[in-house]
Design a protein around this nucleic acid. Structure first.
Lengths: 161, 161
DNA sequence: AAATATTAGTTGACTTAATCAACCATTCTT
DNA sequence: AAGAATGGTTGATTAAGTCAACTAATATTT
């Protein structure tokens, strides 16, 4: 692989590692579990979020998702809404509390970023901005993300033990 | 906050979200739990990794860490080594299997990145590289990362329920 | 240097969270 | 309209994590 690409990948991995919510415990004062936290993040990221979306994205079984969402419901952080078009699926949305919790957690990470960015020269920020924009746009064109869409063989979807 | 900074933060958050291991379940064929996975990542990232490092970084209690490492030991993915200088602490290291597992998982994410990058023009990659380099260097200077170092008040370290 | 206090990690008993499998209810097929 | 498939839930069980009490090693006091 080209050296240039390798370097970029290494840098991106560093950034992802340092900013991803692997240390969520410290922040997350409200008593929600890891599973609940991960579910909240997924819900907040999707326009329409079904149980299976959650299950797939946070790597639990669908019954696991059911239980997580029930708990989030009891804690008034999320709610179920039966889909208009298909009475089987239930869409999960964040409540007001859920939204504010997630954004509170997001703020911490954004704050760290802002500190770094403000220590960079404006021109350099501009360079970074252009590079990132292109990267993200390219990723959308290539449909690399949206892990909810790529459906591989049904059997291998949940390879438990 | 400046629009430029906001945009960069938004883009970084997108990237982090799409590449962080929130969907580890699909990849992670060997049967390891979330906790084990997170622990593996932490170990692989630290030169010297004690039980408490793991506990703090993945947000479990130290007994939780003990159990996770025991499980990883049984699965031959990690091992304990008593510290030379201090007989109380035990350093955890990845076994050969553990290393190859982690790098196998990392590869998937790197592969996605490589796909995107190879679809970008070399000049644009260069721009991205420069921007990211500066960002990461700045973050090191500012000591934003290294969450293992910042020791806040001992009492508030583990605010469970 | 003996006594005491800290610190790092482990263990037993228990709680919480997740799984598996069987199950409704709704929609899709034919 | 009957049967298959899909989306989600529930009961029983297993796994994973907590709490508190403990052991062993190092630090601190006296």
């Amino acid at each position: 692989m080209k050296e240039q690409v390798k370097q970029i990948i290494g840098l991106l991995e560093d950034i992802i590692y340092n900013f991803s919510a692997h240390d969520m415990g410290d922040n997350c004062c409200e008593n929600i579990s890891h599973g609940e936290f991960r579910a909240l993040r997924v819900i907040s990221r999707m326009k329409r979020c079904t149980m299976q979306d959650i299950a797939k994205n946070i790597a639990v079984t669908k019954s696991g998702a059911t239980r997580i969402i029930s708990r989030l419901g009891e804690k008034k952080l999320a709610r179920r809404i039966t889909d208009k078009n298909d009475g089987r699926v239930c869409c999960v949305q964040l409540s007001k509390n859920g939204k504010s919790l997630i954004s509170k957690l997001a703020e911490k990470s954004a704050g760290k970023m802002a500190t770094i960015l403000s220590a960079m020269k404006p021109d350099m920020r501009q360079i970074l901005l252009i590079g990132l924009k292109t990267f993200v746009e390219t990723s959308h064109n290539k449909n690399i993300n949206n892990n909810t869409l790529k459906k591989s063989s049904k059997k291998s979807l949940k390879p438990y033990k």
